[in-house]
Simulated scan of single mutants.
Amino acid sequence: MWSNRPATGIPSWRTIVISLSALAAIVAVVVGVRTTSAAWNDQAHFAAPVTAGTWDTIRAADVMQPGNSNTQTGPGAWTVPAAPESSHEGCVQFNVTGTSATPEVWEVHADLTKPPFAGMSGSGGFYNPGPVQTTIGTLPGDSTTLVLRGVSNGGSTWNAEYNNKYLTSSQTINVKICSSSLPVPAQGNSNWTTIAVTHGTWTDTQACLVVTVTGTVTDTDANPFYFGWTYALDMTPAKQRITGAGKTVNYVGWVPSVGDGGNDWSIGLAPAHNNPVANTYTVTSKRTTAVRGTGTVTVTACVYGW
């Protein structure tokens, strides 16, 4: 794999491929070989291709942070699917610079309790889609803090691709990391959405309530991710429309269907039954009904009777 590079002795179990575009005129620095005794959990040792598709690119939020005093992180960009159902994949690309005139080990942490990683645990599914290497693991005893570090090939000459374990304040690398298994977007704050309920089809045998959820987040630089919502839908008006016409309420149908695409795909309902029709359903967004920015999604509940 490394036959066309001078670094041929890199232990494959310590490294994975990482995408890095070196800044112009990176200074080559001679450093001594040093080792670290820090323990690692859940190391990922694989590479995977980036899925093609339509993407929105925005500035990085505070999910990625320096992991030690030798590290500073600079401007970056998040890449998320243009539509929540188009991919389970997302990436972040950011600068890493040392803080000292002497070479020191750099380290970056990712908080897996924050979007878009909220709900993930461990380093499985994370990868780096380019030619430059790093390690990916988690803190000992903390599977929700992802840890990135550079690698050493045992040589003395710094190289941005395969001998980048140490950085000085005059060296900056641009690191990219992706996840191929982003979870269902976490619930957002209640003031991130407005929710309106209107009548759809409204007949003696079919009475539909249309729930329109609209995002209120105008700053997608500060909050670039999809977020979830929950709403308690009162079914009483629809049921009364059926019974008021002398009909018997039979069941309720949903668009999107609760089973569309799997349990994490469309919506969640509590209670889960459609017959008998409950007076109130708690509707929870899943992957395809999450909202980003000022986007809008609709969910329709139709009560049928005869």
Rank of each mutant, 00 (worst) to 15 (best):
residue 110 A to Y: 07
residue 123 S to G: 13
residue 27 V to W: 00
residue 135 T to M: 11
residue 109 H to C: 01
residue 120 M to G: 09
residue 92 V to H: 06
residue 140 P to L: 03
residue 30 V to S: 14
residue 129 P to N: 02
residue 134 T to S: 07
residue 38 A to G: 05
residue 61 A to D: 15
residue 92 V to D: 02
residue 43 Q to A: 12
residue 109 H to L: 05
residue 38 A to D: 13
residue 98 G to Y: 04
residue 100 S to L: 01
residue 52 A to H: 06
residue 57 T to I: 10
residue 124 G to K: 02
residue 82 A to Q: 07
residue 42 D to R: 13
residue 27 V to D: 06
residue 124 G to Y: 00
residue 110 A to I: 09
residue 112 L to S: 01
residue 135 T to V: 00
residue 128 N to C: 10
residue 138 T to H: 00
residue 95 N to L: 13
residue 80 V to I: 14
residue 106 W to N: 07
residue 75 P to G: 07
residue 136 I to F: 00
residue 62 D to R: 13
residue 39 A to N: 08
residue 76 G to L: 04
residue 69 S to L: 04
residue 41 N to W: 09
residue 114 K to F: 07
residue 64 M to N: 12
residue 87 S to D: 06
residue 77 A to H: 11
residue 122 G to K: 11
residue 30 V to E: 14
residue 43 Q to C: 11
residue 34 R to M: 14
residue 109 H to P: 08
residue 38 A to S: 12
residue 25 A to M: 03
residue 57 T to F: 02
residue 95 N to T: 15
residue 111 D to I: 06
residue 79 T to I: 09
residue 49 P to K: 05
residue 84 P to M: 03
residue 129 P to D: 07
residue 132 V to G: 11
residue 100 S to P: 01
residue 43 Q to G: 12
residue 79 T to N: 09
residue 37 S to A: 13
residue 85 E to K: 04
residue 105 V to T: 13
residue 116 P to W: 12
residue 87 S to K: 01
residue 105 V to R: 15
residue 26 I to V: 11
residue 131 P to R: 05
residue 95 N to Q: 15
residue 102 T to R: 06
residue 38 A to F: 12
residue 42 D to A: 10
residue 53 G to W: 10
residue 61 A to V: 02
residue 81 P to C: 03
residue 100 S to C: 01
residue 130 G to W: 00
residue 43 Q to Y: 05
residue 105 V to S: 11
residue 118 A to K: 12
residue 107 E to C: 12
residue 71 T to K: 01
residue 88 H to W: 14
residue 113 T to Q: 03
residue 96 V to H: 06
residue 97 T to E: 02
residue 132 V to Y: 09
residue 35 T to V: 13
residue 140 P to D: 08
residue 90 G to K: 10
residue 56 D to T: 14
residue 64 M to I: 15
residue 69 S to N: 12
residue 73 T to F: 11
residue 61 A to C: 02
residue 112 L to N: 00
residue 88 H to C: 10
residue 50 V to K: 05
residue 27 V to N: 03
residue 133 Q to M: 10
residue 93 Q to A: 14
residue 101 A to R: 03
residue 111 D to C: 04
residue 120 M to D: 07
residue 99 T to G: 05
residue 135 T to H: 07
residue 106 W to I: 11
residue 46 F to Q: 08
residue 72 Q to L: 03
residue 88 H to D: 15
